[in-house]
Amino acid sequence: ATLDYTTVYTGGGGDGELVKLQLDTTKMTWQVTYVESPIPATTGTVVPTRAGQTASGTLTQETLLPTKKLNQCAFRLNGASLDPNRPARIFVGEGVAGGTIPGAE
């Protein structure tokens, strides 16, 4: 029903990044720590990568999905998307989190 930063979800994406995700559904905040990353920290460079960096922001409970159950377990990661028309979303349930790793250019 609620999450705080003591619950850490660890996983990765097809881009080769390994991240730790933490959500606080009372404070409505999120934090992602990039454990390993081939993604450059700065546009036009190769190193350093985002490894070791932390990104954070606020959460918004999702309301635009087709069912009440989907909306209950979905959150928007405000400030995490490069395209405002495609918000970064995280779905949480049954001990698993899935969705978007915040982007980079």
Rank of each mutant, 00 (worst) to 15 (best):
I90A: 06
A55N: 05
G79E: 10
E62L: 03
Q22G: 07
P38A: 10
T29Q: 12
T25M: 05
R50D: 02
E36F: 05
G16R: 07
M28R: 02
N78D: 15
I39R: 14
T2S: 14
K27A: 15
I39C: 10
N71L: 03
G11V: 08
Q72C: 00
A104I: 02
G57P: 00
L21Q: 04
T58M: 07
V92T: 06
P102E: 07
Q31V: 00
V8L: 03
V47M: 11
Q22H: 01
D4H: 03
E105L: 11
T25H: 04
Y5T: 10
T10V: 14
A41G: 03
G13Q: 06
L59Q: 03
A1G: 13
T29D: 05
V47R: 14
L70H: 01
P48S: 10
Y5N: 10
P66K: 10
T29N: 05
N85I: 06
Q31A: 13
A1Q: 09
G57S: 11
P48R: 10
L59K: 02
E105W: 07
L21T: 03
Y9L: 04
G79H: 13
L23Y: 03
G57T: 05
T25G: 09
C73E: 12
L77S: 01
G16E: 07
L3S: 05
T45K: 12
L82A: 14
N85P: 12
Y5Q: 05
L82P: 05
Q61S: 10
C73A: 11
R50K: 15
F75H: 09
L23R: 03
T2N: 14
N85C: 10
G44R: 08
T63W: 03
A80G: 13
G11T: 09
Q31T: 08
Q72T: 11
G103H: 12
T43K: 15
G98Q: 10
T29F: 04
P38D: 10
G52C: 09
T45E: 15
K27Q: 14
D83M: 09
D4V: 02
T63H: 07
G11Y: 02
G44L: 06
E36Y: 08
T25S: 11
G99C: 04
K27S: 12
V47S: 13
G52N: 11
K69N: 09
G93Y: 08
L18A: 09
L59R: 06
T100Y: 09
E17C: 14
T42L: 10
A41Y: 01
A80F: 06
T60C: 00
P66T: 12
G79P: 12
F91H: 10
G12D: 08
L3P: 02
K69T: 12
I101Q: 00
P102G: 09
P40V: 13
T63P: 01
T63N: 09
A88P: 01
Y34Q: 07
E17N: 15
P102Y: 10
I101C: 01
L82Q: 13
T33R: 12
G57V: 08
A88I: 01
L64M: 11
T43H: 09
G11I: 08
E62Q: 15
S81V: 05
L64D: 14
G95N: 09
T25C: 07
